[in-house]
Design a protein around this nucleic acid. Structure first.
Ligand SMILES: [Mn+2]
Ligand SMILES: [Mn+2]
Ligand SMILES: [Zn+2]
Ligand SMILES: [Zn+2]
Lengths: 155, 155
DNA sequence: GTGGCAGGTGCAACCATGTTGCATCTGGAG
DNA sequence: CTCCAGATGCAACATGGTTGCACCTGCCAC
C-alpha cells in the first residue's frame, strides 16, 4: 500500500501555510481547549489528506517530529468528540480518521478500497432509509461502496 | 449485551436436526473439502443465528464442546473464502460472521446496533450505486443502518 | 474393512491496534 | 511571571487476530 508521505508530497501543497495553521488554531480554541502543537499538526494533516487515515499512517506522516503513540490516540479521540474529525472502521478492522468539513453534519458516503484499505469520502448524498423492523431506532446511515481505488486498479 | 446462548434458546428451534445437518454436510463436501465436525457445527450455528456473530459469541455458543480458538478462526476463514459465510467489521472493530444464504450474491443491507454491536441482515434491496471518480472499480455495496435494535431500545 | 496421506486441528508464541494509570510538563489566563 | 487544569510521555495491559509446527483424521484407493 501507498505510503502516506509519498501520497502527500505527490498530491498536496504544503500543509502548514500560515492561513491553514491560523484556521486550525482558531478551530481548536473555539472548542475551549488549548491549541497544542500535537492537535495543530494532526488536524492540519487530516485537513490536507485526500482520504481517511489510520493512526499508523498519521504516525508515518509526522515523521521525525513524531508524537507519542498514546498522545496521538488521545488527540484523535479529542478531535472526534469535539466534532472536528470523523472516525470510521475499515475492512482491516482499524480506525480511520478524516477532518470534518466545517459545519458538516449527518450522513455521508464512502468508497473503501479492498486492496489498500483507504477510505475516500464521496460527495454524493446517501440514499434514504428503508423501513425497519418494529422497535428498531435509526441514528445514522452508512453507505459504503467497496472495490478498488484508481491507484490500486492501475497497479 | 445479550448472551448468544440465551438468544438461541429463546428464539431458534434445535440447530442440528438431521435435515439441517445433512444440508450443511453436503454444502461443505460440494466445495471439495472434508466435512469435519468443526465446520459442520459452526455452519449450523451461523445458519440458525438471527444476526451476524462474533468469534467470541460463536465460542460461547459452542459451550462445552468448544473448539480451539485458532481452529475456529480458520474454520470461519474457510467458510468465507468458499462463499458459505460473510464477514463484516463491526463498530467495535471486531469481525462478524453470518451464513451466506444459498445462492445469494451481490449487495445486501444491514442494521448495526450501536449498543450491543449486533448486525441484523435486512431484506430490503440496497440502493443503486452513484457514479464514482475515474479509475475506481466497484465490487460491492454496503448499506448499513446504525442505531439501536429492538432489544436494546426496550432495555 | 484397512492403510496412507493431504488436509485439518491444537498449542504456544506472536503481532497489531487500542486503552489505562500515573508522574511530569506546559499553554495561556490572570 | 506564576500557577494549575489540562496535555503529554512512558510503561503496562487488553483484545482480536495470525503464524509455525507437530500431531491427528476424514476419506479415497485398494
Ligand atoms: Mn468521511
Ligand atoms: Mn449480511
Ligand atoms: Zn486502493
Ligand atoms: Zn442491540
Amino acid at each position: 500500500m501507498l505510503k502516506f508521505a509519498a501520497m502527500m508530497t505527490a498530491t498536496a501543497p504544503a500543509v502548514d501555510t500560515p492561513s491553514e495553521t491560523e484556521s486550525v488554531l482558531l478551530q481548536i480554541r473555539r472548542k475551549g481547549a488549548r491549541a497544542t502543537p500535537a492537535r495543530i499538526r494532526v488536524l492540519l494533516l487530516l485537513r490536507a489528506a485526500p482520504a481517511a487515515l489510520t493512526h499508523h499512517e498519521i504516525e508515518q506522516a509526522l515523521g521525525d517530529r513524531m508524537l507519542d503513540r498514546v498522545t496521538l490516540y488521545r488527540v484523535l479521540d479529542w478531535l472526534v468528540v469535539r466534532g472536528l474529525a470523523h472516525r470510521s472502521t475499515d475492512a482491516q478492522r482499524a480506525f480511520r480518521f478524516s477532518a470534518a468539513a466545517a459545519g458538516e453534519h449527518g450522513a455521508h458516503t464512502h468508497f473503501r478500497c479492498d486492496d489498500c484499505g483507504r477510505v475516500f469520502c464521496l460527495d454524493s448524498a446517501p440514499p434514504a432509509a428503508p423501513s425497519l423492523p418494529a422497535g428498531f431506532s435509526l441514528s445514522r446511515i452508512e453507505f459504503d461502496l467497496r472495490g478498488r481505488c484508481a491507484e490500486c486498479a492501475r497497479g
